[in-house]
Simulated scan of single mutants.
Amino acid sequence: MGLDDLEAAMTSAYGEMDDEVDVELDRETRNELALLLAAFDGDRGELFRRGIHALFRQTVDTGDLDFHLREGFDVTYDEYLSGMTYDEMTGQDQYPQRDDDRRYQM
């Protein structure tokens, strides 16, 4: 897995999304949403957009996004943003792997 796999997964997910998303709400979520709607002028769409932005920001700030990206795609968010892995950035992937078994043989 890598950056290309992450890009393909994002493109696929983006293509499957419609402008509107149907979500089933449990009782707790329904109560929280009702309170937020009352507090923020009843614009449900704006609340969902804010909620997604807040969750995204929180996962970036806490490192949860990097953890899940590393686990699933072997990249970090910074690597995704730059379009290259750390090995590519530092040039570590340009050298051939050493064969330690034969390292000191003449």
Rank of each mutant, 00 (worst) to 15 (best):
R27L: 11
D66I: 06
E24G: 10
T62C: 08
Y77Q: 09
M84I: 06
T29I: 07
G51N: 07
L33K: 05
V23R: 10
D66V: 05
N31L: 14
L69W: 02
G45P: 00
H68N: 11
F67T: 13
N31I: 12
G72L: 13
D87T: 09
A34T: 13
R44F: 00
T62V: 07
F40R: 10
I52M: 11
G63A: 08
L25K: 08
D41M: 08
F73D: 02
I52Q: 04
R70S: 10
V75G: 01
L81D: 03
H53T: 09
G42P: 03
D66K: 04
G51C: 06
R30D: 13
A39L: 13
E24V: 10
R30Q: 15
G51F: 06
L55Q: 11
L33G: 02
V60W: 02
E46N: 07
R57A: 15
R30V: 00
T85Q: 05
T85M: 04
D74G: 01
T85W: 03
D87V: 01
D43H: 12
D26H: 09
Y86T: 11
D41H: 13
D43Y: 06
D74T: 11
L69H: 03
L33S: 04
E28V: 14
G63P: 05
L69Y: 05
H68A: 04
L47S: 02
F48D: 03
E46D: 14
A39I: 08
D22I: 11
M84H: 13
E32Y: 08
E71N: 13
Q58E: 15
A39V: 09
R27N: 08
Y80P: 01
R44E: 15
L35D: 14
L33E: 04
R49W: 05
A54Q: 09
F73E: 01
Q58R: 15
L25P: 02
R44I: 12
E32F: 07
V23Y: 07
L69D: 03
Y86R: 10
D74C: 06
I52T: 09
E79Y: 04
N31S: 11
R49E: 14
Y77I: 06
G72W: 05
D41A: 13
T59C: 06
A34F: 01
D22E: 14
D66P: 07
A38H: 12
R30Y: 06
F73M: 03
E71R: 15
E79P: 05
D61T: 09
Q58Y: 12
Y86H: 07
D22K: 10
H53A: 15
A34P: 00
F73C: 02
H68D: 13
F40K: 12
D87W: 03
D61L: 12
G45V: 06
T29S: 14
D66A: 04
R30N: 08
N31K: 12
L25I: 07
F73P: 01
V75S: 02
E79L: 04
E28P: 00
